[in-house]
Nucleic acid binder design. Structure first.
Lengths: 349, 349
DNA sequence: GTCCCAAATGAAAATGCTTTCGAAAATATC
DNA sequence: GATATTTTCGAAAGCATTTTCATTTGGGAC
């Protein structure tokens, strides 16, 4: 008897199937299935045989074939996570939160990165669906049409039918940062506006404008600079901070678009011989990991990224299983964390 | 006629099945399947009907049911990525590389994070298998027994049957760093040994010892400090650098375990009033993103993390489809990137 | 006209599970 | 002892594919 050569790429046929455990206990697959899933049909099987069945299943180390089951019940307990790029500081934390919640629910996720490529994004969304995901979580990606599956977006600020946005309360965020700066005596504040490629930009910017107006802060156009591009490194901010400096307008504080650009800006400012925070205070946004460990440690508006990820996962799952009605928006409160990159203006001290 | 309420959690039954396209062309599912997969059976169907079939499939936007197919052919084109934690700088880059290669092959991946929890790791490995993954890629995780599926490990330095390790050439790395330091005139070099929890530690350390011996560098025990714990933040290094300082032994250079600990160390050194690199040069390891943007930018031994991820994915896929024999190890060349955290010793300048 | 071969397609089994429905056995009711 | 009622379980029909093997047809050879 020749042994069949192990075929490449074959999943090791788990050998122990529902039928094998059925045979072991001398019953049929139907009943075994019923009790193993403790389905309603299992009510009528006596505890004694129930025990025999689970014992047999355990003895054989029976594992239901996931695909056969999915084929029948049409559920996969799998979702798709759509990122702009894997490994950027922002998205990573969100995904970490997502994973943290999903694991508690025995749900898994497929990750894809679209890198701002519309075509890729569209193709991913359909191929993920083919793969059976039951919903999407997007991070920092601009959706343009209603997705085919329930989805919740983190940092995706278009209002789109069918997607619930996890949004930071940007007005509160702006208020936190600006009152901090004002309390430190700053009057000449430079602002960095986000790139059009970042989903958060518009919302954040209009909130800043609104709050500044309300607080009586004059936003001088010469002190406003807009980022361009989607560099995930501090290079995002560096050249624009340089541009700002070239204008020769004095300012004592800079409210950067995010931590990444704040870090880039600080490099530029220091190269220009300015001291942070003595010459200019800079406050970032997000509180990514390196914010605390940068030099100087960054004062920043924290987004509770991990919590946002958890929240996203929870609401997606709730929407999927129908236990939660669709809501278009869920707000999250920011938090100001004061470190060493902001200080009293010299003028006042 | 009442419309059936949309059941929660149901995958939108794709409606268009193999049979529907078969009906459309007036053929049977078998033949349609054959030509759509251009299987050998399709040789005998005339080009004319072939065209009709693919046209029909396209017209209906037919998408084969992934689960039914997997059930039959026992392939999922899905692998599992096992990390220590999602979103740490090191792993993220590797995963980014993994994704980059997988996408070209239409393979997807499930991600899980064990947080150095043995139990969790074991359970993940079995549940991922149930989910149909065809292999594992592990990052910085200590496997203890031969995994059930082909696996390739990056930064997992135990030699284990069945896993091929993507390993940095640590001797070369040590040599790169140490000759750099020696050329700058350093003689009193402090060394930071990795934590036992990090998979790379042992290999890296013994390489350093070996190379140092060969180069005639005396490694004084008073200048060696060992990290403990698995903090993924610069706090990993900070307290140990402090300890080192408390010993009151002078040193002009520090070869940190990695960039993260280098950053933490620099903070500690600066707090002690030392200037980097004038008072002490520090060189890191890995070249994570923030290395370039830290202040001062880190001189470091670069691991081509993205490339390592790509390589891992490629070799795993090759092993799975049988086109590559198992090899226990694949070496990757490091690279020294000199930035601003290292300089001539004062003594010599 | 019979036979045969190739071409073209279909029938059916198999994958491993869930689920409905019904049948047999056991027990209760009168 | 017959009927009704539970209890306990099995048969079978899916789910959407793939794959093996068989069947039909047409045409050529003799």
């Amino acid at each position: 008897m020749k042994t069949v050569p192990k075929k490449a790429g074959r999943i090791p046929k788990s050998a122990v199937t529902l039928k094998s455990v059925a045979e072991l206990v001398g019953l049929t697959a139907s009943t075994v299935s019923a009790v193993l899933n403790s389905s309603s049909a299992a009510r009528s099987v006596p505890p004694h045989t129930k025990k025999r069945i689970v014992a047999a299943a355990r003895a054989l180390d029976y594992r239901p074939n996931f695909f056969a089951r999915s084929l029948r019940v049409k559920r996969t307990y799998m979702i798709g996570v759509i990122l702009e790029e894997i490994g950027d500081a922002y998205g990573s934390l969100v995904v970490s939160g997502v994973e943290r919640y999903l694991r508690t629910q025995n749900v898994f996720f497929l990750t894809v990165a679209h890198r701002h490529d519309k075509k890729l994004l569209a193709s991913y969304s359909t191929v993920l669906r083919e793969r059976g995901v039951e919903g999407f979580i997007t991070v920092d990606t601009l959706l343009t049409e209603e997705p085919a599956l329930p989805t919740v977006a983190v940092a995706g600020h278009r209002k789109i039918k069918g997607v619930t946005n996890i949004v930071l309360d940007h007005r509160r965020a702006a208020s936190l940062a600006l009152t901090h700066l004002v309390e430190l005596g700053h009057e000449k504040i430079a602002f960095m506006k986000g790139s059009k490629l970042s989903a958060d930009s518009d919302e954040r910017w209009s909130a800043i404008c609104e709050v500044a107006a309300k607080m009586g802060i004059h936003m001088r156009p010469e002190l406003i600079i807009e980022l361009k591009g989607d560099d995930p490194t501090p290079n995002l901010g560096y050249p624009f901070a340089k541009q700002l400096l070239e204008r020769k307008e004095t300012f004592t504080a800079l409210f950067a678009y995010n931590d990444i650009s704040a870090i880039g800006s600080i490099c530029a400012l220091q190269e220009a011989g300015l001291h942070i925070p003595d010459d200019v205070s800079v406050v970032g946004f997000d509180d990514i990991q390196s914010a605390a460990y940068f030099n100087p440690p960054l004062t920043t508006v924290r987004q509770p990224l991990i919590k946002m990820g958890e929240m996203a996962a929870r609401t997606l799952l709730d929407r999927i299983d129908g236990s939660m009605k669709y809501v278009p928006e869920i707000a999250i409160e920011p938090e100001l964390v004061v470190r060493k990159s902001s200080a009293q203006t010299r003028a006042c001290s």
